[in-house]
Nucleic acid binder design. Structure first.
Ligand SMILES: Nc1ccn([C@H]2C[C@H](O)[C@@H](COP(=O)(O)OP(=O)(O)OP(=O)(O)O)O2)c(=O)n1
Length: 897
DNA sequence: AGTTCTCTCCAG
DNA sequence: CATCGCTGGAGAGAACT
């Protein structure tokens, strides 16, 4: 029986069915009883459209050469009064510009930025920081505390060189890591691997401390090298419980079978593409024989071979499954005895136990990922070394499709020999893993034959031999592309009883199939019933590259995800982005589009689901964003995702899953690079001029400035902005309980956001990022000292002074930018020293002031400026730091009393 | 009418 | 103790140009 998980829709109290096979817990069961199907609401899409930036009639304007992203950059810089440095002038395109050049240039740009950072620091503090790390070339591996960004800044400020990527060619003097998996430990054993504290302490003491005192690998002795197999079991004394642990992602992935399956698959695909040059291209006119090989109950077989010898069980007698737990744990693989009782891969152990007869005990075995990988490698080597095949297409860790240019009809005996040889060879070389093989003149029949051959067999049948007896042995979901949902559609349309493929063939026509399951799949099934492949499937043989090449990159974690505060979400998102960023750079790719999916606990699902730390029944929320220009910058990516999370607006304690996707990938192209090198001709033009031009650009890009709802800076009434300020703040307070309605309101509002609003947010976001980044680093020492502002340390006096400043500048068209910067710095220092409540107090004072002060016509500007500071500077600071607010607020109240 | 985006489904 | 519910791709239909 196939089961599924039901998720509640966002807008409709009824339910939607999704297909997660063989899985059901009691909560789901209850939900199924009330289920109907509905569509999900769609969130508004990101609307910056690259096309508009490419219009040729704008070629004369510098601004028109900028992507949306760069345009925003440009405006941001201009607002800061911080024009970018004049770039080198190169206007001609260079056709030889290669990917390597790109990364080379990127490094050069990075070096420039590092230099700039040092200069800024010098200007700000009037002194050169001690060049502690003068001759160090440092690489940071994986997740660290403090984070990569901070360490990077610390290193370059103090004279070190920072390596973004580690490669054999590059020299590296030190590797920083907080933690290393055993594999990496061995890989790095000849490097100086140090804990991040080495950086922190060296800076604190103003001198380069001996790295040995901070070595991470002191414990890597002979004993450990010899016992890599035993180590994973022992683990550290501290077990990693949920996603707030800095090492959660790697520890989780190390144990996730689905993660392993996915990464193995993509590795195999990459390997195939790498070795493509040596494989023969198959022509449509070639006569073909297809072999479909697959291990029998792969994980179960291998786990059984390496089981604890104390555990007595028999593969041919006992039902055996591979899983982590013993109740609500997924079964990755079950042996054929277990299948006899109706147990299937993907089921929960508890359900499998119910299927076993009373006197039969279900045996559970742990995973052995290392051996799974080894057996697979042997399998692929046997296929390759046999030299039988013209093409070896990896389907998964335990499954490959092999193609021979050979007429299968007239070479029957040869086919039988090949099947026998390969199966025997794999069995001996793996020391006991049986594989099965289906062989035919089409992909689909090879697959059906494989199914029929299992376990431990071979079956050959070509399309000219196809008959009703054969088709009667299969069910619809034996066809590729037919799963839970399609089966139920077919059942509804064709037959209620147990439908075999022969039944389906008898009862269906091409049209009726297409009517039932759609054009493409309908045709695919129709052809399959005649033993023929559809066009899309055949591509795998004739154009494997197009099928096996990577088109996207993503990460998804729906286990162990539990948050209390938004800061934890942000931190987790940062770590996810760091993970993806590494992959993206390994691929040497950029992404122009990012999607965030949040799994939110379904309103009526229990807070804790049946499965320990599982996601339970959830509602998915998707939001995607098209970046103005493709990027591989961690900062941009992480900021974007965190911003998407805020747009989705799911309370942290309701989040059960996080998924981040780079929907498209592109290579750094020649076209992009020269654009960045264009001279900043108009840089010194007067502000009005710039304003006109940016407006012009907005217009050209169909980003309207006229719509009233977009007038962010001057809302219709000051009363409105104050309520919305208060509402916004109140609703974000940790004390809020059961404010679902308000949240929904907020989500709806967000959905109505316009392009202009999105751009405004983009600008703020970036400024926030920079500020956040800097302030965090520079304010570290101030935690327990009185926070001074303008050399006053008494808060009451400070707030008096600030209010006078507000009062005065309200009538003068707003405060000076530089003063605002100082003010902001002060606010951030307050937050960083756990004094968010004081920021709140200042916010309230200013908000009251704006509300109470009589507003004269010619003073509109000053009010607007202060409203902007309130909304765009102070509220974000409060939001960013509200996690520290709850504890301090008590003190604040006590203090006030 | 073609293109892009969002959502669903599937496989292993 | 529980438990490790990933990831990439195809296709349909809606929403755009
Ligand atoms: N829901 C699933 C399906 C599969 N797998 C893993 C374990 C399987 O051993 C391996 C290969 O999957 P198969 O579909 O080939 O299934 P088996 O090899 O277990 O059995 P068989 O191929 O004999 O039917 O992938 C998993 O972890 N979870």
């Amino acid at each position: 029986m196939r089961c599924d998980e039901i998720r509640q829709d966002r807008t409709d109290p009824s339910f939607r069915v999704t297909n997660n096979k063989h899985r059901m817990d009691d909560e789901d069961l209850a939900a199924i009883l009330t289920s109907t199907s509905t569509d999900a609401t769609t969130t508004s899409r990101a609307q910056l459209d690259e096309k508009h930036s490419q219009k040729s009639d704008l070629a004369s304007s510098f601004l028109s050469t900028l992507s949306d992203d760069s345009l925003i950059d440009y405006i941001t810089n201009n607002n800061d009064g911080n024009p970018s440095p004049a770039p080198t002038v190169t206007t001609t395109t260079e056709p030889e510009y290669t990917r390597g050049d790109y990364f080379h240039e990127k490094k050069a740009r990075q070096d420039e930025q590092d230099q700039l950072l040092r200069e800024q620091y010098r200007t700000n503090l009037g002194a050169e920081p001690p060049q502690i790390f003068q001759n160090c070339i440092i690489y940071i591996n994986g997740y660290t505390v403090p984070g990569r960004l901070q360490l990077h800044e610390m290193i370059v400020l103090h004279g070190g060189k920072f390596l973004h990527h580690l490669s054999a060619k590059k020299k590296v003097t030190h590797i920083i890591a907080s933690n290393l998996p055993l594999k990496k430990r061995l890989e790095f054993q000849n490097y100086k691997v140090v804990k991040p504290d080495w950086i922190v302490q060296s800076i604190a003491q103003g001198k380069l401390l001996p790295w040995q005192d901070f070595a991470l690998l002191t414990n890597l002795d002979e004993r450990q090298k010899k016992l890599p197999l035993l180590l994973p079991k022992k683990q550290d004394s501290k077990t990693i419980v949920d996603c707030n642990d800095p090492n959660f992602i790697s520890s989780y992935f190390q144990n996730s079978r689905l993660h392993h399956l996915s990464t193995w698959k993509s590795d195999l695909r990459a390997k195939f593409l790498n070795e493509m040059d040596f494989t023969r291209t198959i022509e449509k006119t070639d006569p073909l024989t297809i072999f479909h090989f697959d291990f029998d109950c792969f994980f179960a077989t291998v786990a059984y071979m390496y089981k604890d010898p104390q555990l007595k069980c028999d593969m041919d007698v006992d039902p055996i499954v591979v899983c982590h737990g013993n109740k609500n744990s997924d079964i990755a693989s079950c042996n054929y005895v277990a299948r006899k009782y109706g147990i299937k891969n993907g089921m929960w152990v508890s359900q499998a136990e119910k299927l076993c007869p009373a006197n039969v005990k279900l045996i559970t075995l742990p995973y052995n990922f290392e051996q799974f990988a080894k057996k697979s490698e042997i399998f692929y080597n046997v296929l390759k070394d046999s030299n039988f095949f013209d093409l070896i297409l990896p389907m998964s860790i335990d499954e490959a499709i092999c193609v021979m240019v050979l007429d299968p009809m007239s070479n029957r005996e040869k086919l039988e020999t090949i099947c026998r040889d390969i199966r025997a060879k794999v069995f001996t070389e793996t020391k006991g893993c049986s594989i099965s093989v289906g062989c035919a003149d089409s992909l689909i029949l090879a697959r059906l034959n494989l199914k029929k051959s299992k376990p431990n067999g071979a079956f050959i049948l070509n399309s000219n031999e196809l008959d009703s007896d054969f088709l009667n042995e299969f069910k619809p979901d034996d066809l590729p592309g037919v799963g839970y949902s399609i089966v139920s559609k077919l059942r509804e349309k064709f037959s209620t009883s147990n439908l075999t493929l022969q039944d389906l063939k008898n009862e269906s026509t091409l049209i009726s199939l297409q009517d039932c399951v759609g054009q493409k799949l309908g045709l695919k099934i129709h052809l399959a019933l005649q033993g023929k492949d559809d066009e899309e499937s055949s591509k795998l043989i004739y154009d494997p590259e197009s099928i096996l090449e990577r088109k996207s990159l993503s990460l998804e974690i729906n286990w162990g995800v539990r948050f209390n505060e938004i800061n934890q979400v942000d931190t987790f998102i940062d770590r996810c982005c760091q993970y993806l960023h590494e992959k993206l750079n390994d691929l040497e790719k950029l992404t122009p589009q990012i999607t965030l999916k949040i799994m939110k606990r379904a309103p009526d699902a229990p807070i804790e689901p049946a499965k320990y730390l599982g996601m339970g029944r959830c509602v998915p929320f998707n939001k995607s964003s098209r970046l103005g220009t493709p990027t591989n910058e961690l900062g941009i990516i992480a900021t974007e995702v965190k911003s998407l999370y805020r747009i989705i607006g799911c309370p942290p304690n309701e989040v059960r899953g996080v998924s981040i996707q780079f929907n498209k990938l592109c290579s750094p192209s020649i076209n992009q690079q020269p654009a960045l090198k264009l001279p900043f001709v108009k840089l010194n033009a007067p502000p009005n001029n710039i304003q006109d031009k940016t407006n012009h650009e907005f217009k050209k890009r169909k980003i309207s400035l006229e719509t009233p709802t977009m007038r962010l800076i001057s809302p219709p009434k000051k009363f409105d902005i104050l309520t919305s300020f208060e509402e916004k703040f109140i609703e974000n307070l940790p004390t809020q309980i059961g404010e679902e309605l308000k949240k929904d309101l907020r989500i709806k509002k967000k959905i109505q956001q316009t392009k202009r609003k999105e751009i405004e947010e983009e600008i703020t976001k970036r400024q926030d990022l920079v500020k956040n980044y800097k302030s965090h680093f520079f304010s570290e020492n101030s935690l327990f000292e009185p926070i001074k502002f303008q050399n006053i340390s008494n808060f009451k006096k400070i707030s008096q002074m600030i209010m006078e400043w507000v009062d005065g500048t309200l009538r003068e068209g707003g405060p000076h930018e530089r003063d605002v910067k100082l003010f902001e710095k002060y606010l951030i220092r307050l937050c960083d020293s756990n004094r968010v409540h004081l920021v709140l107090r200042l916010s309230n004072l200013i908000s009251n002031k704006l509300n109470v002060c009589p507003r004269r016509d010619n003073e509109e500007r000053g009010f607007q400026e202060w409203e902007r500071i309130l909304m765009k500077l102070m509220v974000p600071i409060l939001n960013r730091n509200k996690h520290t607010f709850q504890t301090v607020r008590k003190l604040d109240i006590d203090y006030d009393l």
